[in-house]
Every structure is written in structure tokens, then in C-alpha cells.
Amino acid sequence: MVVRLRSQDPRQPEPGRHGGARANQLALQEAIKELIVQRGLAPGSLLPTEQVLARELEVSRHPLREAMKALEALGIVDIRHGYGTYVGSVSLGGLEAGLAFRSARSIKGDLSDIRDLLEVREVLETGLVARVLDQFDQIDLPALEEAVAEMERHASSGEYAPDADLRFHETLYQPLGNALVLDLLRVFWRVFHAMDGDLPREQADPAVIASWHRDILEALRSREEPALRRAIGVHFHAIRARVG
């Protein structure tokens, strides 16, 4: 596999030299990703040594190291000094950081990015209602009950229980067996929770928040799709009201 880099021939200068260098670097990163995919390397697999990769990709070691650092930041590779470079697990940390930044910026503006984030989360959760009911027998109802009960106990003292809130949503969608869905739910939840205190309108009373989750649980127990969809919708409608 050869990386198709932009011409470095001084007799053929290109406008925007820095742009050309960036294009070369991006091409190299894409070549490394393609190598991982083409060879079917799973997360945790050891990549060829730097010397071997440089020879296979026909690049020098310096741009190769820069490419590896960029891919490590994305979680695509895991550089273990003294041991080698491995295929990474590709977490959603970059997505979470980007959404957190956009949301923080949105608080100082028109809140549109925050509203968009809530809409995506709502579409994701309500869109999975039918699948959740299909997996009803696999749902850990006692764990959901305990999460709601914990929220109610804290609410009796005027306190919100964020850990129980997140655990409720994780438990609800766990039976789907979709790790990406759970990761996305955690990202959306954590981003919104981090900016919660900076939103223009106050959070709902903890007892009301607990009641939303109690209603979702009871609708789930009824195994009626319209009721469950409606209960989840009420939950998000109340959240959206905080950002207009």
C-alpha cells in the first residue's frame, strides 16, 4: 500500500505549501486506517513496527509518527511506548469533547446547538421504543425499580440523583445489545448534565424528575408501545422547556 502524497518537486510548486503538507498528512492517516481495515485487525491487535510501516507506506518516520499521534488522539491506535502500537478501541471521547464545546458556546448564544442535541437524543430514545418492548423479557425490571426508588428517596430531601437517572436509561436500553447506542446515550447525557447549571431556566423539581421516570417504568410494565412512547416524550418535552 502506497500513500499518494502531493508533489514535493520544487520545480512544481503548489500554492499554499502548508495546505499541501496537511493534505499529505491526512492522506497518510487515511492510508494507516485503510491498512487496519484491509488486514482485518481487531482492537488490541499489534500493528507492524514503525520501520515496517514506513517502508510499506513509502514515507519517512517523522510524518508517520505525526500521523500516529493524530490517530491516537482519535482512539484509532494505542501507542504503548516500549511495547509497540496497537489498534485502539475508538471511544467517543472526541465526540463528547466536541459536543461539550459546542454546547458551552451555545449557552452564550441562541441555545440552538443545545436544542439540536436534545432533539437527537430524543429521536434516538423514542425511536428504540419498539425494540425495547421486543426485548421485554431481557429487561432488568428490579434494577429499573431501584433506580427510580433511589431518585424518589433523594427527591424526598429535595435532592436530584443524577447517577440513578443515568443508570435508569442505561438499564432500559441494555437488552438491545447495541454498545454504540449505550455509548451515545452516555455521551448525550453527560454533555447535557455538565451544562445543566448554566441553562437559562431552572431544573425541574427532583420529585417531578423522579415522577417522569416512574411513569416510564409503569408504561414499560404495561408493555403498551403508545404509552411508553408518550411517557418518554413527556420526559423530553419537560427538558426542552428549559431551553425554549
Rank of each mutant, 00 (worst) to 15 (best):
A143M: 09
T126Y: 12
R121I: 09
D137M: 00
L128V: 03
L144R: 01
P142I: 02
L128H: 07
V132D: 04
E150T: 15
R121A: 08
T126Q: 10
I114L: 13
E119V: 01
R153Y: 14
G127L: 04
E119K: 10
L141F: 06
E152G: 02
R121T: 09
V123R: 15
P142G: 07
L111V: 05
D113L: 14
D110T: 09
T126P: 05
P142L: 06
R153G: 12
A143P: 07
A155K: 02
R115Y: 05
H154N: 14
G127H: 11
Q138N: 07
E119F: 08
E145N: 08
D140L: 10
V120R: 11
L141I: 11
R121F: 08
P142H: 00
Q135G: 14
V148W: 00
G127W: 02
V120K: 09
V148P: 02
R153L: 04
A147K: 00
L124S: 15
P142E: 06
V123M: 15
T126G: 12
R131T: 06
T126F: 07
F136D: 07
I114P: 02
E145P: 09
R131P: 07
R131L: 15
R131M: 14
E122F: 04
A143H: 13
D137R: 09
Q135E: 15
P142N: 03
A147E: 08
A155V: 03
L118H: 08
R115W: 04
S156C: 05
S112T: 12
V132E: 03
G127K: 07
L128K: 09
L144T: 00
I139H: 02
A130Q: 14
V129I: 12
E152N: 05
E122A: 09
E150Q: 14
L133I: 03
L133K: 02
S156P: 04
V120A: 15
A130D: 11
D137C: 01
T126L: 11
R153V: 06
I114D: 09
E122M: 15
A149I: 00
P142S: 01
E150A: 14
D140S: 02
E146K: 15
L141R: 10
Q135R: 14
D113G: 08
A155W: 03
E122Q: 14
G127S: 13
D134A: 08
R131A: 11
D110V: 10
V129K: 03
E152F: 10
Q135S: 14
I139V: 08
P142M: 03
A143Q: 13
V123W: 13
L141K: 06
L117N: 11
V129T: 13
E119G: 12
R115P: 08
A149W: 05
E122W: 07
A147W: 06
E152M: 10
D113W: 13
V129S: 06
L128M: 13
G127I: 07
L133V: 03
L141M: 09
F136K: 07
T126V: 11
A130T: 12
